[in-house]
Nucleic acid binder design. Structure first.
Length: 281
DNA sequence: AACCATATCAACCGCGTGTTA
DNA sequence: GTAACACGCGGTTGATATGGT
């Protein structure tokens, strides 16, 4: 184990030159963040090794890139994943596997690192507890038949509870009871029978490509493109602990997801698993 | 209050691929 | 064609936070 935790030597042995500086590692300081943000604001991103040097940062280019992309970049969302986002991750992972950066493309503002962490800490944990391989068909089926309907229920109930009685107003696009087909009001949405597996959103199975995924996401998760993205950035700046939601019609910011929904979802999930499987968590 | 176990997530590492000279 | 460099991805690690005893 290295005694010097926060530095590493950049070049092996050659004596003092610009290239022979000690590079910092570990958590970033506020000063380093400022330097990086300032430099990128003025000069743009890319050429990370050079950028690191010119910005006066004793960091590798890789480290700078990671810090920027995962934390400092203005459009990075913070806070817990919303049920909608969780749902999308589950669906996309079932089709794409561990292609985190690919999955992240469909969750604007979320990073591959964050999604990967979510999967490992939340989803794989459940698989471990159930002693099921998280890549197994059984676990996939568990997700599809139990978790996804459960998430859909959460989404629905949260939209109901936050929309106040204004009929169709704040139900996120895609989760509404088809505003276009006016009066007939009733449930043309595939989300209205969350316990019916066959009505869960399904990505086309074999040999999917980008356009398949695009149309899937647009059809079933339009909030990502319009509902969420347009409003989320500003909502999350300043308060990293709360995830806000946004009522598109009223323009109200609704504090509703974040810890409350995430926590209750997972505790309900544990309870739910126990009921279904008898496994104690 | 102190200790231990577990969860979380930022950051690092190795490697494959793309680009440039 | 190829060597050197840059970039990006996925897996892993480790520091810190949180919860339980």
């Amino acid at each position: 184990m290295e005694t010097e935790m926060s530095f590493l030597s950049k070049s092996s042995s050659s004596s003092s030159s610009d290239d022979d500086i000690e590079l910092r590692r570990g958590p970033w300081t506020i000063e380093e963040d400022k330097l990086l943000v300032q430099y990128i604001t003025n000069h743009g991103e890319g050429r990370w090794n050079m950028l690191a040097k010119h910005a006066g940062l004793k960091r590798t280019g890789k480290s700078c890139r990671l810090r920027w992309l995962n934390y400092l970049k203005p459009d990075v969302k913070r806070g817990n994943l919303t049920p909608q986002e969780q749902l999308l991750i589950l669906e996309l992972h079932s089709k794409l596997g561990n292609r985190w950066s690919k999955i992240a493309q469909y969750l604007p503002g979320r990073t591959d690192n964050e999604i990967k962490n979510y999967w490992r800490t939340r989803v794989q944990k459940q698989a471990r507890n159930l002693k099921i391989d998280s890549n197994s068909a059984a676990f996939q089926e568990m997700i599809r038949s139990l978790w996804i309907p459960r998430l859909l229920q959460k989404i629905q109930s949260s939209s109901v509870s936050t929309s106040i009685q204004s009929s169709q107003s704040s139900t996120p696009p895609g989760f509404s009871t088809s505003t276009s087909s006016n009066s007939s009001s009733h449930s043309s949405s595939i989300y209205n029978s969350p316990n019916n597996i066959s009505e869960c959103p399904q990505i086309p199975t074999r040999e999917i490509d980008d356009s398949d995924l695009d149309s899937f996401v647009k059809a079933h998760f339009p909030f990502d493109n319009s509902y969420d993205m347009d409003n989320f950035g500003e909502l999350t700046t300043g308060n990293f602990d709360d995830v806000m939601d946004y009522d598109q019609l009223s323009g109200d910011h609704i504090k509703m997801t974040g810890d409350v929904i995430a926590d209750s979802f997972w505790s309900n999930m544990d309870e739910f698993f126990y009921q279904k499987t008898g496994y104690e968590q």
